[in-house]
């Protein structure tokens, strides 16, 4: 059984200007020990899809009109707040993009680190303190005892992100949702952080959902990749398949338009146009206007899933790519 299964999830924001359809019916699943990469440009719904079912977004304006999110077979969407609270930050943990804003500046690292342990694992403060020190060691922070007593502003961005990871890991989660965990960091620090995530995953067998816009990061860490665009899943495939034999024109165009350091290019192939306005989505495929392969049917209806193989799904009316 899948650890986490998302079925036809929709997340809409009801604003004064109209309904912004941020997530528009997405489905995928996550197995234990697996790393699922979710890639997409800004506004593709990759973050909202996660935040919405964890009830981390204000509602209203958020509404989830349809869908199911099953954690070990149980629907998170219909869970009571208390039950979800016991799960969130415990068995399902999150790391956010901005380590500056996601730590409380008024509290020491230590008091923030022991909080999940005291609340979720019901440990005494003393035991929790010890566990937290160990967690800091695991993410490569030297002199953990000393680090526990400092405030977030005394740490650099990379160190803060390590603290965030340590905090997310103290309760030994089964699912770690990492939302652009390295976007605010420098490349050398990014390499360190990704390495830590990989090592810890090997030890604990936790599953990771990694949300990013960086195809390079996806290539290095994921087992399976979901490509999102304008609130839809366009393609899902094992990482090697996606990069080599993508069956979706958007994925292909995205891969081509990413500059790479191992290739010399005279001109980068571009995707013309811009991302559609999510409050004014038309019927049909949201990529229609920018697509090189578009057909009449694409404008009429969003394509049904096409199984390329048992693990590779594409949502496109076009079947044969050269």
């Amino acid at each position: 059984m899948a650890l986490l299964e998302i079925k036809n999830l929709k997340a809409h924001f009801h604003t004064r200007k109209g309904v912004v359809k941020a997530v528009n019916g997405i489905s995928y699943s996550l197995n234990p020990g697996e790393t699922l990469g979710i890639v997409g440009e800004s506004g593709s719904g990759k973050s909202v899809s996660q935040l919405s079912y964890l009830r981390l977004l204000p509602s209203p304006p958020l509404r989830i009109p349809e869908g199911e999110v099953l954690y070990r077979g149980e629907n998170i969407l219909t869970m009571s707040d208390d039950k979800l609270r016991a799960l969130r930050g415990n068995k399902i943990s999150m790391i956010f993009q901005e380590p500056m804003t996601s730590l409380n500046p008024y509290l020491t690292i230590g008091s923030q680190l022991i909080e999940p342990l005291v609340i979720h694992s019901k440990l005494s403060k003393k035991v929790a303190w010890k566990e937290a020190c160990e967690a800091l060691n695991r993410v490569g922070i030297p002199e953990a005892e000393k680090a526990m007593k400092v405030y977030p502003h005394e740490f650099s961005g990379g160190m803060r992100q390590r603290v965030m990871i340590a905090m997310a890991l103290t309760t030994r989660p089964e699912v770690l949702i990492a939302d652009e965990p390295t976007t605010a960091l420098d490349v050398t620090v990014q390499a360190q952080i990704l390495e830590i995530l990989k090592t810890i995953q090997k030890e604990t067998q936790m599953a990771i959902i990694l949300i990013t816009h960086d195809l390079g990061v996806i290539a290095g860490i994921s087992d399976k990749v979901v490509v999102m665009y304008a609130g839809r899943v366009f393609e899902e495939a094992p990482v090697d398949t996606l990069f080599e034999n993508s069956e979706h024109p958007y994925t292909r165009a995205l891969l081509k338009s990413t500059p790479r350091i191992d290739i010399s290019q005279e001109k980068i192939p571009v995707i013309g146009g811009t991302i559609p306005d999510l409050s004014q989505l038309k019927t049909g495929c949201p990529f229609y206007e920018r697509c090189d392969y578009r057909k009449d049917i694409c404008q009429a209806e969003f394509p049904k899933v096409r199984k390329v193989s048992s693990v590779h799904e594409s949502f496109c009316h076009v079947e044969n790519f050269k």
Partner: peptide, 24 residues
């Protein structure tokens, strides 16, 4: 610095050796 830049190709990524810099 060059070895730390992720490359959008899983095969290349797996075969690469990184020079891990310590600290910040």
């Amino acid at each position: 610095l060059i070895s730390a830049v992720p490359i959008a190709d899983p095969k290349v990524e797996k075969a690469r050796k990184r020079i891990q810099l310590q600290g910040e």
